[in-house]
C-alpha cells in the first residue's frame, strides 16, 4: 500500500498530474433551476474544459471562470482541472489557434460569477467558500 502511494505520487510528479480534490476552499455553483446536485471531479473538469458540450437535458453548458490572478481560480484549476492556471491557458490557446473553441467567459469577482450563473440557466461556475450567494444559484457537491 505504501509502495502504491509512493508510486502514484511519483507518476503524478513526472506527468504533472493532479493528486486529489479534497477539502475544497471553493464552491461549485449552478443555476437553481438546474437539476444537477452532485458531479464528479472528472465531470466538472470536462465541463469547464468544454470536453462535454451539453447537460443531460441537451442544453449547451456555459462555464464561467474567475479572473486569471484570482486565488480561487489557482486552487480550482489545480485541484479540479488537474493543471495550473498557466497550463489551462495553454490548453485554451491550443483550442483557439486550432479553431476548435474558445475559453469560458471570465468574471472578475465571486459576486460577478454568482450573478452570471443566477442569470443563465445553463451556466456553471465556482466561487470562494466565503462568498455570499444570491438567490437563483445553488451549490453542487464535487465528488472525488
Amino acid at each position: 500500500m505504501k509502495f502504491q502511494s509512493v508510486a502514484a505520487a511519483f507518476v503524478a510528479f513526472v506527468l504533472g498530474a493532479p493528486l486529489r480534490a479534497q477539502d475544497a476552499p471553493y464552491r461549485l455553483i449552478v443555476n437553481s433551476n438546474n437539476p444537477v446536485g452532485a458531479l464528479s471531479r472528472d465531470e466538472v473538469s470536462k465541463l469547464f474544459l468544454k470536453k462535454v458540450p451539453a447537460w443531460h437535458s441537451g442544453e449547451a453548458v456555459v462555464p464561467v471562470d474567475q479572473s486569471e490572478d484570482a486565488e480561487v481560480r489557482r486552487v480550482f484549476s489545480k485541484r479540479v482541472l488537474g493543471k495550473d492556471v498557466a497550463s489551462v491557458k495553454g490548453y485554451w490557446q491550443q483550442a483557439i489557434f486550432t479553431g476548435r473553441g474558445f475559453p469560458p467567459v471570465e468574471k472578475s469577482s465571486d459576486a460577478e460569477v454568482a450573478a452570471f450563473v443566477a442569470g443563465n440557466a445553463s451556466a456553471i461556475g465556482y466561487v470562494s467558500s466565503a462568498a455570499t450567494l444570491p438567490n437563483g444559484v445553488k451549490v453542487v457537491k464535487v465528488e472525488n
Binding site: 451539453a54 442544453e59 495553454g90 490557446q93 489557434f97 479553431g99
Partner: peptide
C-alpha cells in the same frame, strides 16, 4: 450541434496528425 457534431465549410485546417493545425504557432 449539441450532440457534438461539427461541420466546417470553406478553407479549413485539416485535422491530420498532431501538428497540422498548429504548425506555426510558436507558443504551442
Amino acid at each position: 450541434m449539441n450532440d457534438g457534431l461539427q461541420i466546417r465549410v470553406g478553407r479549413v485546417p485539416i485535422p491530420r496528425g498532431i501538428y497540422n493545425e498548429q504548425r506555426s504557432i510558436g507558443v504551442l
